[in-house]
Design a protein around this nucleic acid. Sequence first.
RNA 1: GGGCCCGUAGCUCAGCCAGGAUAGAGCGUCGGCCUUCGGAGCCGGAGGCCGCGGGUUCGAAUCCCGCCGGGCCCGCCA
Length: 614
Amino acid sequence: MISYLTELNKLSESINKAIKEYGIATSAIYVGEPTETSFGDITTNAAFVLSKTLRKSPYEVAKDLIEKIEFSEEDIAVELHSSGFINFRLTDLFYLKFLNQIIKNQGYGKITVPEKKKIIIEHTSVNPNKALHVGHARNVVLGDTFYRLFKRLGHQVTVLNYIDDTGVQVADLIVGFKYLGYPLESDEKYDHYCGDVVYVNANKAIEESEALKKKRGEVLKDLEQGGEIYRYARPIIEKIVKEQLKSAWNIGARYDLLNWESHFVHGGYWKKMFEVLKEKGLIKFVTEGKHKNCWVLLDKKVLVRSDGTAVYTAKDLTYAAWKLGLIPDEFYYSVFTKQPDGSELYSTSLDGGLKGLYKPADEAYILIDQRQLPLQNLIKDALKALSASKDYKVIAYGLVALSKNTAEKIVKGKVEKEIVHMSGRSGIYYNLDDLMEAIKQVALKLINERNPTLPEKEEVASKIAVAAIRYSLMRPDLDKQIVFDINDALKLEGDTGPYIQYTYARASKILEKSNNEVSLLNQIKLSEEEKRLLLQMSKYDYYLFKAYSSTSVTALANYVHELAFAFNVFYEKKRVLDEKDSELKKMRIALVYAYKQIILDAMNVLGLPELKEL
RNA sequence: GGGCCCGUAGCUCAGCCAGGAUAGAGCGUCGGCCUUCGGAGCCGGAGGCCGCGGGUUCGAAUCCCGCCGGGCCCGCCA
């Protein structure tokens, strides 16, 4: 394998080896990208770190150290900077080998972690009583992107979606249908109808009526017990889930398994969990104080009330433990539906189907918004105490709120606050399907202006919308709150998903016109733009691993944008097809070919749909 | 009362984890590139006490402490 990362690792090793000759225990030696590209491709601050103990200037140390570092001069050139940084540059020969490798492999090649793991990732998990809004979309996009990343790195990944079909939100909806007379059918998309009309109004009515509150309590109890009302509700819920899935599929997501909360409840999983917790001494029965007669987890959180019923966190904990195989799996599994990517989506079941379909995971990831972090960390601590070898990983992200502007459009009136939080209950949210449609219309308009003869405009516009939505939701750092503004969301220029798709289309067009005549190179002569593009291309694996080890796709998305930018600069400055020098032309075709392979690979990881033309 | 996150250009954000070389993008703005392998592009200009104060250090946007501003969480609820 020839890549930036492999060269970086080799250098890092040999720098550390060279430092050992000084007999100094090293810590925090940086070997990596320099702050500015003009300094080189790889840099190290080793001389600064050593200068303290050696009592010499960084430059003096670097001058000496540089002689001790071993590397292949074929691939790397070294430079000593007057500041004391040692900078390395990849050579033309390195790039020649790198290009040929891609041409031979017809792609970047295998990028595999040293240790393949069984990973479970849970995302989406939206209450099945309404449509997905842009806040849920952040969860779906991040979850699906991590799934794609793990998969790309060679892990065995299972994607779960948890359906809370026994909660209050569903109970509200059922009250609306059963006692408030809302019709069971509608011409509207069903999840929109249920969320926008039935749930919002039912909730309002329930809050205002003690009698309805009592009814809701009965519904809730029946859902838990799997009685008559549960059987009435089940088909309604399934219909909503199917619509929610469509919205998620539309932006490129897929799942392996639906976990129904009712199956955990009716299957008695909490009782099993309770026994495990008791046996390991993680929960204690409290005999006095404010938690008298309750069972408390890790001296922090009540899990069983004084009346003997379990709190919601108990269900969360049970589910988490099940993922890691800490309680036995007694479910049956059956096919719920077929997905657009051709795969089958399974569902848990209590009566009939396959058994033991899913093996416990080594690592279980869950995507949550920041508000749930304290609770999920508690679960993480509890699981750690149950089994040290298993890893429960929480990926928390900032909330998606609405800008004042956008909120005013939804409530159709004045809004005081600069930022408005979405709320399914009060009907303040921007639905994902609506966003898709709005961006699609903008894209369609652009296509009609710029490329009116393009075939399958609708489909192309959809793919542009997917790229725009996914990129904008994965690009900000996880910690950052996103203030969603519809006017900003409709912009398709600059640092966006479509920008990246566009460079792929440009590369595809050139290759198509060259009749795809790509062949291995014997020599190489590179301009600044070409070298810069190749450098970016060689860094692909470096950023994939970085995204995995830091559990963040921000830097990866950023990198892909820079890669696309490097291609655009090359494209502006150098001609490919009308280049007179045949060797140069051959080299540039190879370069474009390699770019296309890598950007496509990257787009697959980020879930940006491929477009040969737009 | 206790805790978490954010604060970098007019706006939206990278960079902070592993301190180091002139703090970078996008949008907007002003100007340039249609003799176009497709302009959803490229090039340039203007625009920064990196929230404030202190500390550590030869060196701080980055680490530590305090404050200010914004968002959020903390029930035997779900």
